[in-house]
Design a protein around this nucleic acid. Structure first.
Length: 135
DNA sequence: GTTCTAACA
DNA sequence: TGTTAGGA
């Protein structure tokens, strides 16, 4: 499986994303309303976020802290193209992986992700998520 | 127990 | 953005 797909697998419910990003559920849902992120949904209508979604949220968070509003962020963060590599995927494989995801697995998973670099986003996620693997 | 949408003392 | 109501 490619890292591209791995990064786009919808794995985390909003609770985990809250801890990962330090954002409130309210904020996360609000950003989704403004299409800054487009998480996948389970059959029960619950949001499932991919690592890419988490990265985008961290970027959004940093921009908000710099005083940028939603309109401004929309100009920085390109819209997610449907059916593109940026679209959050949810399938059987994702389903299985998500159910088996434990907290310790999450840590190992995140550490692994940090080694697969991506231009423009790497420095950010490494800084923001460091509190997890450095503790 | 967790998450969802809608709405505002 | 916070918070709460009422459901799933």
């Amino acid at each position: 499986m490619s890292d591209e797909i791995r990064r786009n697998m919808a794995l985390f419910p909003i609770g985990i994303v809250m801890k990962l990003t330090d954002l409130t559920a309210r904020q996360i849902r609000y950003y989704e309303q403004h299409e800054l992120i487009v998480p996948a949904r389970t059959a029960g209508n619950q949001r499932l976020f991919s690592l890419n979604d988490v990265e985008r949220l961290l970027e959004i968070k940093s921009l908000i802290e710099k005083g940028v509003n939603i309109a401004g962020i929309k100009q920085v963060l390109l819209p997610i193209e449907k059916n593109s590599d940026d679209a959050t995927v949810i399938n059987e494989q994702t389903e299985v992986a998500r159910k088996e995801l434990t907290d310790s697995d999450l840590h190992k998973y995140l550490k692994r992700q940090l080694r697969t670099k991506r231009p423009g986003q790497v420095s950010l996620i490494q800084g923001e998520l460091s509190r997890f693997y450095n503790k």
